[in-house]
């Protein structure tokens, strides 16, 4: 049966009609399929939730217990009723992130959620899942977004640290995913010093470690003397960068790890001195490469700069449409 007959895109989420379930709904629903733990995809208040075990742990940390959790290890199939079989596959976005494959009446539909194609030391890599309809994100869906090599960006960070022994390097990174990724990338680059954290990052880092991601020596900024932080790397949520909180740091060099840093004026808006283009989303080349790799019959674009990606598809005679989704704020990269 063609996907449009059993999958309905709504501004508040994707409704899978035969099994009466919603994918990443932005309002509380009795049955929710959740791709990953970011707040714009995983909300509290649902009745039952199907997600990877890691995503369920992350939701538990954020929203407490409440929803009935159905753990979906990667690759396992579950019958959701109404003839819909669902399985979860790595999306490479953050720990626990998944693409959801739905099979119904001979039709295969993949919802990517957020994803990236390049390596990430904190989560398993994206898997190409063949399907008829690909429902893809498009956060960085413009050809200006080409994320440089992550190692080069990490090298910039380490150079800035070496060049400023009397200052600290304050890196803005989102609490779930980006912070742990930056730590992991630093470790891979051979940096084994203690990395200092804003209090808001502590719990999630600890959860990552419990889930088997080794982050090396970490400590809280709150426990340190200002002078002892000279020459150190400090991580904080982006909101704290220009906040009073940062006054406790020794003359910080303000850095920000985000795909948006590719555009100069976006970096300037954030008062960033050291922009680091480290993204957990697919860039333009990854988005288009993925469409070619998956080679679906149809492409639906959920959120981001969907117009450009739809145009790219139509230039290649691929059937594509933009879905109007709300509440997906893509600033969390």
């Amino acid at each position: 049966m063609p996907a449009e007959n059993w999958i309905e895109p709504h501004p508040t989420g994707i409704y899978v009609k035969p099994c009466d379930a919603w994918i990443d709904p932005s309002t509380p629903r009795p049955r929710a399929l959740v791709t990953h733990g970011h707040a714009d995809h995983a909300r509290g208040g649902h009745g039952a939730v199907w997600a990877t075990p890691e995503t369920l742990s992350i939701m538990g940390l954020r929203y407490g217990v409440g929803a009935e959790g159905n753990a979906m290890p990667y690759g396992e199939e579950v019958d959701l009723g109404g003839g819909v079989i669902a399985s979860y596959h790595p999306a490479g976005h953050v720990l626990g992130s998944a693409q959801i494959l739905l099979q119904h009446d001979g039709e295969r539909v993949v919802v990517t959620g957020d994803y990236k194609r390049r390596a990430d030391p904190t989560c398993p890599p994206f898997e190409v899942v063949p399907c008829d309809v690909l429902i893809t994100e498009a956060t960085f869906g413009l050809p200006v977004f080409k994320h440089p090599d992550t190692a080069e960006e990490v090298a910039k960070l380490l150079e800035a640290r070496a060049a400023n022994p009397d200052r600290c390097i304050l890196v803005g990174a989102y609490a779930l995913g980006k912070a742990q990724r930056v730590i992991g990338e630093l470790r891979d680059a051979g940096y084994h010093e203690t990395i200092y954290l804003h209090g808001a990052l502590e719990k999630m880092c600890r959860l990552y470690e419990e889930l088997g991601v080794d982050l090396g020596p970490l400590a809280l900024v709150a426990d340190q003397e200002k002078a002892d932080l000279k020459g150190c790397i400090v991580l904080a949520p982006p909101g704290a960068l220009n906040d009073r909180w940062s006054r406790r740091l020794p003359d910080p060099v303000t850095a920000m790890a985000s795909g948006w840093m590719r555009v100069r004026q976006r970096a300037r808006q954030r008062n960033v001195e050291l922009p680091l283009v480290i993204s957990d989303h697919a860039d333009w080349d990854e988005l288009t490469q993925t469409i070619e790799d998956v080679a679906p019959r149809e492409i639906w674009v959920t959120h981001g700069r969907e117009d450009a990606l739809v145009h790219w598809c139509s230039m290649r005679q691929m059937k594509a449409r933009a879905l109007a989704m709300v509440g997906r704020e893509d600033e969390d990269d």
Binding site: L142, V144, V263, Q265, R305, D307, A308, H311, W312, M315
Partner: peptide, 13 residues
């Protein structure tokens, strides 16, 4: 560049 992709990009940047 494709003119439409360029225009969308220019508008954004």
């Amino acid at each position: 560049f494709d003119p439409l992709l360029f225009r969308m990009s220019r508008d954004y940047v």
